[in-house]
Design a binder for these strands. Structure first.
Lengths: 110, 110
DNA sequence: TGTTTATTTGGCAATATAGCCAAATAAACA
DNA sequence: TGTTTATTTGGCTATATTGCCAAATAAACA
């Protein structure tokens, strides 16, 4: 049952895990508008360059972005643009949580 | 730039993180067909009950599943069914990786 | 009530992740 | 060539995650 699905689920989990970090989600949002060099992304995020570089390497390893060296710098681009439509559903989860939270608060308030 | 998006991205990352494990993805697939007790899921997965219970608690915490106690047992159900459509895009990523891998192999084979 | 069954929780060890600094690499340019 | 700029890698510490076992909790049932 599970053992049979395991390889496919491992692969999916790997992609989700690569996305599951706020800086990496931010990178994906920025790249949606077009490619960017590491220096741009670093400035936007405000972490150390080495940290941003490692985030990019995680996304690259997962096959979500591709890189291209031009001259001095390295440009990253989205390889899988649909990755961002993707969030309609995530937002549904978040909204239902917000709803529940509000309901809880109103109960507590009685 | 990033700081402004951070709260929303943190929330999204939390949901993705909760999903990013093969056993938890399996649970979501099973629950898509209907609610299940912890005992069923435990048998299907083949880990310790306590491990499965903790996976369920991660999914619950993220708002993806809900639980309901009936008599002796606890039934879990999907709260956000769209969570599984969600994977069309993930599969795209995985297929493009497979393609690249094949291309690499064919280059190596020359 | 005492026992069995289902589930959760605490605690622990192994492993993975995040983020920083410093050092290595590589291209551009004086 | 020597220097500056951009990026990656190694190394480290702090923190989080995973999965097991044992113990706690709770419902069912004899």
């Amino acid at each position: 049952m599970y053992q049979q699905r395991k390889p496919a689920l491992d692969a999916r989990a790997k992609v989700l895990k690569a996305m599951a970090h706020p800086s990496r989600l931010f990178i994906l949002e920025v790249l949606e508008a077009g490619e960017r060099c590491v220096c741009d992304l670093t400035e936007m995020i405000g972490s150390d360059v080495s940290t941003v570089s490692k985030h990019l390497s995680v996304l690259k390893q997962a096959g979500i972005v591709a890189d291209q060296k031009r001259g001095n710098q390295v440009f990253y681009q989205l390889r899988v643009p649909c990755i961002l439509n993707f969030f309609g559903c995530v937002e549904t989860v978040l909204q239902s949580q917000a709803r529940d939270h509000a309901a809880t608060l109103s109960l507590v308030g009685r």
